[in-house]
Amino acid sequence: MSQQTDRAEQVKRLQRREGWRRRLPLVPALLFTIVVTQVPFILSLWYSLTEWKIVPPEPRNFIGFDNYVDLLDNRFFREAVWTSVWMTVSAVLLSLLLGTLLAILLDRKFFGQGFVRTLLITPFLIMPVVAGLVWKTQVFNSSFGVLNWLLDSLGFERIEFVTRWPLWSIVSVLVWQWTPFMMLIVLAGLQGQDQSVLEAARVDGASSRAMFFQITLPQLRPYLELGILLGSIYLIQVFDYVDVITGGGPDSTNVPYFVFQRSIGGGWQFGQASAYSIVVVIASIVIATFGLRVLSNLLEGEKP
């Protein structure tokens, strides 16, 4: 009797040991990630409930949710939220649309296909700061920009794009950089298609348009969703482009840039700025909830 319980306990102990042996390799990465990403976030939550000016240093006061109440009345913050929404949504959708079209163009054999693909992905590799500066000074610029030279030679007025349409100037650069990314994802989807289904449809005499909308597009759906998810997560955090193209201002200050202006960029209002940044977190959680579902669909059925 007691021998049996001993044995059962031994088995349990061995199992537990095996469990820990499996978990052990995970521990360093998990600990590091929790300390460096979760702890600051919790501190941010705490800061957002205080009134705290750093330069010149003032004592920190706990003020509850006052920062959040104030933020609803803050016109500049509301503008920054709208700028963020427009910037993210338009850049993601435009680059996804362009990227899909390009992927369809590239998903066929033609002379120099590999070279064309290489040219097309290059914008994505360019350092964001450089992309912003090159477009601002050499494409959009009213005196030396290529675009304005083109307008001029076609007989139109020169336009200072960046001051006239700050938001759309930034979105253009974002689309230029993210179209190749979307193209690569959609291309992977196109090339992973089940060829036998397409062949069967062709034999049945389906038109290529019907085949695209009824077979290809549904198969591409997870890829398009992945593109939207990754694009939104990165683009909602855009900072570099705003900094080098306009340096802030109406119609171009998004929430991350606004947080910077109100804190490290000179405002030094860490309490208030933290409350702003928490709003970005809430938006990200909304995207992530959608996103995690997409990802878990992709992982579904996959056994390690």
């Binding site: 600051p40 941010s44 800061y47 997560i233 490290i264 933290s274 940044s277 995690l292």
Partner: peptide
């Protein structure tokens, strides 16, 4: 566990920058 790792990417850097600066 995998989802936890990837979900930290959903946390915008801007929400961590002020505490990181202070630390």
């Amino acid at each position: 566990v995998l989802f936890f790792f990837i979900s930290t990417k959903f946390l915008p850097v801007v929400a961590a920058i002020l505490p990181l600066w202070i630390i």
